[in-house]
Design a protein around this nucleic acid. Structure first.
Lengths: 265, 265
DNA sequence: GCGGCGAACG
DNA sequence: CGTTCGCCGC
């Protein structure tokens, strides 16, 4: 089974790029972020015409997540409140950043973590509050086979950025990195790309500005985390840079994990 | 000699369409309107690379006219004030709507007449004041061989619109039609398209809205007027609808007149 | 319905 | 740098 995560930066603008890619890389589940479209306006048929099921949680202009799945998913849920209830969630479900569903024994949680703008800003504190709620949300998950993926807007380690960054740089500040580790790694989930690849120089996002891609000024901020039971079934994790080289690309490129079917006992 | 007029609705957005057309239809002079670009930002080289000379009068966002000529033009002039002086012109040269030049014995005046918005509006009165100044401007012209062309934003007769329009419709109100006739026809200039084609159903502009083109809901508002000396040398006038059928077209399509070289005596 | 622009966001 | 929006103009 293949699961991919891709921040497409507007699913409508990127529709041709995404459907072309999906035909060449017919992954089982494609997790999209930054769809930037309401549920009513989501281009469903472009995916259903390819034989995919479409599960979405979107809004106008900003954010928005989707699960595009070859097989129907079960237990599809949107936002944090479905698991946690309304009280702890407060304003953190107003932006559409969370969708989850289950394929066979595998639970997939697709996330678009807030960017945070600048360290110390109001948006930064929203990001930290959001990550703390994510920690509670993931703690409440009981599934053994869990894949938590998406655009985390955080580089875990220095090797995940093209060049040394100051500690006060958004997406690399110690506090947000600690918050992400606390929310995900401390629960036993493993960054599957680093399970297979230890060298630096592998990125999933390059700023549109100043020729970020052509100068390979990238960041690895799109991750797939697997629970211990699932990491042992993973056979590889790759970043497909090809879509970043097309005309009018997203600034992110897809990351794909391959997971073996469970051994029948 | 061929002269064409074309409101391109942004020369930058339409650059490929216009240069492709110019290579297939290598007219001697192409008169553009609604270039929507400052002189500094005009895409000169796209035309000079094809061997054309470029004469422009543009502004940011709105209006803007250009003469694209295979041979260098003489006596190039911009606005009304070059001929009339500053006093009568007032605010009517603030918008870039007039450019003229001479090719051999033929003087070409390229115009973008104000749209007028709604009958009775402030913009409508600006349009009427502008047309009165145009009348003075053309009256002051002494050239025997004169071609006055452009987007006039006025249909001369009922047959120039796809369907009967109320008298209070902008681009067809009696007052603006009379103002145009007074400014142009009453000076002896002839609408060369009507010199050759008398049937209705020939248009140069179709609203983008409500499938105006596919339903052929057009207007003939782009004209070429020739002085008596020149009308006798005209051999044809055609509307080329092909560019209106391309992807991302202008709402206007080019009108071309063919003029014989003068008989050498 | 499509141009342009400026502002917000990333 | 590229997306979205709202606004203006036609």
């Amino acid at each position: 089974m293949q699961i991919a995560t891709w921040n497409v930066n507007s699913v409508r603008t990127r529709l041709g790029i995404v459907t072309d890619w999906l035909q060449r890389q017919p992954v089982d589940v494609l997790c999209l972020q930054e769809t930037k479209v309401t549920d009513e306006q989501f281009p469903r048929s472009a995916f259903t015409d390819l034989g995919y099921e479409v599960y979405i949680s979107g809004q106008k202009s900003y954010n928005g997540v989707a699960l595009i799945s070859r097989q129907p998913l079960t237990n599809v849920s949107v936002g944090f409140a479905g698991i946690l209830g309304a009280e702890p969630v407060g304003d953190l479900d107003e932006q559409k950043r969370v969708i989850s569903g289950q394929l066979g024994d595998v639970s997939i949680i697709n996330l678009y973590v807030p960017n945070g703008s600048e360290v110390g800003s109001e948006k930064y504190h929203y990001k930290l509050r959001w990550l703390e709620l994510l920690r509670q949300y993931l703690t409440a998950q009981s599934d053994k086979s869990l894949c938590v993926c998406g655009d985390f807007n955080i580089a875990l380690e220095a090797i995940d950025i093209h060049t040394k960054k100051k500690d006060d740089h958004i997406m690399y500040s110690p506090i947000e990195r600690a918050a992400l580790k606390s929310a995900v790694l401390d629960l036993g989930l493993k960054d599957v790309f680093r399970h297979f690849v230890t060298e630096p120089g592998h990125y999933s996002w390059w700023d549109y500005r100043q020729g970020g891609y052509s100068r390979n000024r990238g960041w690895r901020i799109d991750h797939l985390y697997l629970s211990p039971e699932l990491i042992d079934r993973a056979t590889g994790c790759t970043i497909d840079k090809a879509p970043r080289e097309l005309e009018q690309p997203s600034d992110h490129t897809p990351v794909i994990v391959e997971i073996e079917q469970p051994v029948l006992t």
